[in-house]
Amino acid sequence: MIERSLGFAVWMVIGFFAFGITHAQAYLDPGTSSMILQAVIGAVAGALVVIKLYWYKLTSFFKGRVGTKTDARGTDKDE
């Protein structure tokens, strides 16, 4: 039951987005579903990068070592 409700909710959300742009006077598909998929992939990829970047802080937090190290590797110059 929960799975069916969840599935229904997912399809409702996809439908809501997929039919967001319906008025353009064109035969070509607006690509909305591709945009949604790209956004999901981008969010996952971004989250993984953030986790990687903050991995030291995360592990330090659980080890009780928050703030014991100041990172200097991000202070670069690109000018």
């Binding site: 790209q38 990829a45 971004g46 990068v49 970047l53 110059k77 690109d78």
Partner: peptide, 21 residues
């Protein structure tokens, strides 16, 4: 911010995002 982390994240995202297409 030097935006090194943001640059890394955004570069990775734009490389991964179009792979299914």
């Amino acid at each position: 911010t030097p935006a090194a982390g943001l640059t890394l994240a955004l570069n990775v995202i734009v490389l991964v995002v179009p792979l299914p297409d």
